[in-house]
Amino acid sequence: MSDINVLVLMGGPDAEREISLKSGAMIAAALREAGGFIVHEQIIDKPTSTELRALPGDVIFPVLHGPFGEGGPLQEIMEADGRPYVGSRPRAARIAMDKISSKLFARTAGIRTPPARILIAGEPCDLEMPVIVKPVDDGSSVGVRRCFDAAQFAAARAELEVKHQRLMAEKLIVGREITVGILERDLLPMIEVVTSQEFYDFSAKYERSDTQYILDPALAPEIQAEIAYASRTIYERIGCRDIARVDFMVDEVGAWFLEINSMPGMTDHSLVPKAATHAGITFPKMCARLVEKSLSRMKGNHRMARNAANAVQAHAADASSASTESQVALEGASQGASEGNTATMTRDQSGAQDQTND
């Protein structure tokens, strides 16, 4: 069997570009170490379909983080390209990137998630302090602020509203931070993140050396079961594929779902590679497995592009089914909640979301 040509995409226009560059370089090196692959590394910004088609490769491994590269637009371009690629399809990528949308999916599955509100400039927020203010669709703790009183909340909004189009406020849960990687449909070992910082911010994730990562942390059996159920359920209901990471906070009430990442970081500080290694899956083996899985989905000639009309139709269907309403409130009840007692959700505008996988 001849070597497989893999196009590793990295960079992108989003705030996490530098993390993407590190992740892409590590994946390229891992595939070369695994053997059987000819690796083409390509730094991109926002390529067109025509530009992507001109790049070499039998399969695409996109390692971008942020709204463009991880949140649907790049996935739509790769769908039109027709080659197999690693990661979630457009609709699932959009839902996972949008923290409010993913919380809605969690809520409909009966999974506990902190109350949250979309923040609209000039309008008040009825959540009680303390809260977290953060962009709806960014990762790596970019633009995250903890607010313990009205003055801090006003300052955070004033700072972030000029930098981000969509902001949210979420009830602050103080407790243990637990994350779960998913490889295909297999749950990787849980990791507890312990940081000397106020919280697990960008610096703690990628710059500091004193952040502790506790594999297989000591958790009550019922909490482990709750986290495992929530992780797999959210992954499957949103329609993610290949790889993801699901983040939780755990307090005396139980586990609280925060977000799901459909293309988690792949640097030497990143959590999914650490969990996979602990499970006996080396980084080269994991990367090779993801490429082989994506190839196995494409029957026949995987170089053949899809019919242009079908691509347009799929794009329109995706845009319709995954629309996220701008006015969403997640309210409700957490004090004294037992397992399965979750926030109550209301939507100012109606429109059910199709949960069928892409």
Rank of each mutant, 00 (worst) to 15 (best):
V131N: 02
K163S: 11
L188W: 11
A352V: 04
A276M: 08
Q353I: 12
K285R: 15
T233I: 04
L258Q: 10
K103T: 08
Y213Q: 05
S270Y: 07
M97Y: 12
V312H: 09
R17F: 07
G71S: 09
V174N: 11
R241Q: 12
A155V: 05
G12P: 01
T277Q: 15
M286P: 03
A121E: 14
I243T: 10
L290I: 01
L127G: 03
I234C: 05
R83E: 12
G66W: 06
S140A: 07
S140F: 02
D201K: 03
G139Y: 00
D138Y: 08
G300N: 06
V250Y: 06
S140L: 05
R89F: 14
A150L: 03
Q327L: 14
D3Y: 03
A228K: 11
G340N: 12
Y206F: 14
Q197G: 15
P13M: 08
F257C: 00
Q335E: 14
L295M: 13
N261F: 04
K299W: 05
V136N: 10
M26P: 00
P284K: 13
L188T: 10
A121G: 05
P84W: 06
E339R: 15
E207P: 00
F105N: 00
Q197A: 13
D137Y: 03
E76L: 13
R185N: 15
G66I: 04
K205Y: 00
I38N: 12
R157C: 14
D137M: 03
R208S: 14
S101A: 15
L74I: 10
R245M: 06
P221I: 00
A244M: 00
L127S: 05
R107F: 05
K285D: 14
S20N: 08
Q75M: 11
R145V: 14
Y200D: 07
E184F: 15
D247C: 07
C147H: 06
C287T: 10
K171Y: 05
E70R: 10
M249F: 11
V86F: 14
I95H: 12
L119N: 02
D149M: 10
C125G: 11
V193F: 10
F257H: 00
S20G: 14
A305F: 01
G122P: 09
S334K: 09
L21Y: 02
G122Q: 02
A333I: 13
P84S: 03
L271S: 04
I44R: 01
R89N: 15
S2M: 04
E207H: 02
V144Y: 02
P221L: 00
E123R: 15
L188K: 06
K46T: 06
G122Y: 05
E123H: 12
L64C: 09
V253H: 01
S338F: 10
G332S: 02
R303C: 02
A337Y: 11
I43S: 06
R157K: 13
G143H: 06
A155Q: 15
D268V: 10
A317E: 12
L119R: 01
I27G: 01
R185A: 11
T211C: 02
R245N: 06
M286E: 02
M345T: 15
P47L: 00
I281W: 13
S296H: 08
V174P: 06
L7V: 03
N357M: 07
T195W: 05
V144Q: 03
P13L: 07
A279K: 15
L52T: 06
V131I: 12
L160G: 01
S320L: 12
I238H: 04
P124Y: 05
E18N: 07
